[in-house]
Simulated assay, not measured.
Amino acid sequence: MSEHQPLSVDGQPQQLNQDEATQLAEELKQQIRNGVIPAGDSDSIERMVAGLGDPRGLMRLTFAESLGVVGKAAVPSLCRALSEHDSVTVRRAAAKTLTLIEDPRALPVLLKALLNDPDPVVQGSAVGAMAAVGAEAIDGLLEVLINPNSTAMQLGLASWGLAFVGARAPEALRNAATSDHAEIRCAAIAALGDQIQSLDDSEARGLVEQGLKDSDRDVRAEAATLLGKLHNPAWAAPLLEPMLNDPEGQVRKNAALSLMKLQATASRPALDVRLSQEDQTDVQAVLKLAINQLDQAG
Rank of each mutant, 00 (worst) to 15 (best):
residue 47 R to W: 03
residue 221 A to P: 02
residue 170 P to S: 03
residue 21 A to K: 04
residue 60 R to E: 08
residue 85 H to V: 05
residue 148 P to H: 09
residue 81 A to H: 07
residue 187 A to V: 07
residue 74 A to S: 12
residue 230 L to Y: 06
residue 43 D to T: 14
residue 266 A to Q: 15
residue 278 E to D: 11
residue 153 M to A: 13
residue 127 V to P: 07
residue 155 L to Q: 14
residue 83 S to D: 15
residue 191 A to Y: 01
residue 207 L to R: 01
residue 190 A to L: 10
residue 283 V to K: 00
residue 279 D to N: 14
residue 111 L to H: 13
residue 233 P to I: 06
residue 259 L to Q: 05
residue 83 S to A: 15
residue 135 A to P: 01
residue 213 K to W: 05
residue 153 M to T: 14
residue 60 R to S: 03
residue 214 D to W: 07
residue 102 E to N: 08
residue 18 Q to L: 15
residue 148 P to M: 07
residue 287 L to W: 03
residue 114 L to E: 10
residue 124 G to N: 14
residue 89 T to G: 04
residue 93 A to F: 06
residue 272 D to R: 10
residue 287 L to P: 01
residue 120 P to K: 03
residue 182 A to V: 04
residue 6 P to D: 12
residue 87 S to E: 15
residue 224 A to Y: 09
residue 271 L to F: 10
residue 285 A to H: 08
residue 99 T to C: 06
residue 123 Q to K: 15
residue 114 L to S: 09
residue 120 P to W: 02
residue 98 L to C: 10
residue 125 S to H: 15
residue 175 N to G: 00
residue 153 M to W: 06
residue 173 L to S: 01
residue 101 I to Q: 04
residue 24 L to S: 05
residue 31 Q to M: 12
residue 232 N to Q: 12
residue 171 E to D: 09
residue 179 S to H: 02
residue 52 L to I: 03
residue 218 D to P: 01
residue 172 A to T: 00
residue 103 D to M: 03
residue 196 I to H: 01
residue 82 L to T: 10
residue 273 V to E: 15
residue 228 G to I: 05
residue 183 E to Y: 07
residue 103 D to G: 02
residue 282 D to N: 08
residue 33 R to W: 04
residue 141 L to M: 13
residue 131 A to Y: 01
residue 238 P to Q: 07
residue 83 S to E: 15
residue 155 L to S: 05
residue 17 N to C: 02
residue 90 V to A: 08
residue 258 S to E: 14
residue 245 N to M: 12
residue 103 D to H: 03
residue 269 P to S: 12
residue 7 L to D: 09
residue 67 L to M: 07
residue 221 A to E: 15
residue 264 A to N: 04
residue 179 S to P: 03
residue 35 G to S: 08
residue 113 A to D: 05
residue 119 D to T: 06
residue 296 Q to S: 14
residue 159 S to L: 02
residue 232 N to P: 00
residue 258 S to M: 11
residue 98 L to A: 05
residue 126 A to S: 13
residue 164 F to L: 12
residue 84 E to Q: 15
residue 289 L to H: 11
residue 172 A to P: 00
residue 274 R to H: 08
residue 242 P to A: 06
residue 244 L to F: 08
residue 49 V to W: 10
residue 122 V to Q: 02
residue 55 P to E: 11
residue 117 D to H: 13
residue 117 D to F: 09
residue 99 T to K: 07
residue 209 E to F: 10
residue 133 V to L: 07
residue 104 P to Y: 04
residue 247 P to V: 11
residue 150 S to W: 05
residue 206 G to N: 05
residue 142 L to C: 12
residue 5 Q to P: 00
residue 206 G to F: 01
residue 244 L to W: 04
residue 20 E to A: 10
residue 151 T to W: 05
residue 73 A to D: 15
residue 221 A to F: 10
residue 119 D to G: 04
residue 234 A to W: 04
residue 108 P to W: 00
residue 172 A to H: 00
residue 15 Q to P: 03
residue 29 K to Q: 14
residue 131 A to P: 05
residue 158 A to C: 06
residue 174 R to K: 12
residue 201 D to K: 07
residue 114 L to G: 04
residue 258 S to A: 13
residue 245 N to T: 11
residue 298 G to C: 06
